[in-house]
Design a protein around this nucleic acid. Structure first.
Length: 217
DNA sequence: ACATTAAGTGATT
DNA sequence: AATCACTTAATGT
């Protein structure tokens, strides 16, 4: 067995304990491709075809929905080690263009699984099916939370949730980004973000700086 | 020093 | 809360 395969097996063991069948682990180790992305790198853009399903090994990926018209964006959820991209399953199986955009927020490593296996494993391996289903469930729950905060709560609570998700997901209380970027993620105006952050700074929830912000939750 | 970009502010809708 | 029209502040060249 190759060094590459051994490495993947070890990673699987550490980050994807749900994937139980030995033969499945071996298949992934054989055909999976380790891929690295730098911080800020665009992994999949809106409209491109999905050829692989990623298993996230390390880092953090931002998944966002893009509006058809004027470059509007909305953060849907964040993915971390042990997660997979649910949208990519659907896109793969139906051979559709990606309805989302994914971007690495920090140095990120994934195992890429070519499309053809993904489908076959669904019927072949119980743990793969469970893994996929579980992943759908998690993502859906996260999206419900986002919808909930958009529909029923003000921007202030939404901002808190956003900051919490980002800092937890990146494991860093300080975020290096502009108010404009946050405004894009939340799909609100930059001014609204600036004004709200100023309020949050006054009550001591965040610490502000140019191009950076520290969450003190 | 100058230009550029990020952030703050007030008025208007 | 969005948009506009500006001002002020920080940073890069």
């Amino acid at each position: 067995m190759s060094l590459h395969s051994l490495k993947i097996q070890k990673i699987l063991h550490q980050n994807f304990p749900q994937i139980a069948e030995k033969s499945l682990q071996e298949e992934i180790a054989t055909i999976g491709q380790l891929m690295d992305f730098e911080a800020g790198e665009l992994i999949m853009d809106y409209g491109s075809y999905v050829r692989m399903v990623p298993l996230i090994v390390k880092g953090c990926i931002k998944v966002s929905r893009e509006d058809d018209e004027e470059g509007k964006e909305l953060l849907l959820y964040l993915l971390n080690a042990g997660d997979t991209c649910s949208m990519s399953f659907t896109c793969c199986m139906m051979d559709k263009k990606s309805a989302i955009r994914t971007e690495a927020l920090e140095a990120t490593t994934i195992i890429g699984i070519p499309i053809k296996y993904v489908d076959r494993w669904m019927t072949q391996y119980q743990s793969w099916k469970n893994f996929v289903m579980m992943s759908y469930d998690n993502r859906l729950l996260e999206m419900v939370k986002v919808i909930d905060s958009i529909a029923f709560r003000g921007l202030d609570k939404r901002m808190e949730q956003y900051l919490k998700a980002l800092t937890e997901s990146t494991g860093n209380k300080t975020l290096f980004m502009t108010h404009q970027k946050m405004a894009d993620d939340l799909n609100v105006s930059r001014e609204a973000v600036s004004r709200l952050l100023k309020k949050l700074a006054q009550i001591g929830l965040v610490k502000l700086g140019r191009n950076q912000l520290t969450f003190l939750g």
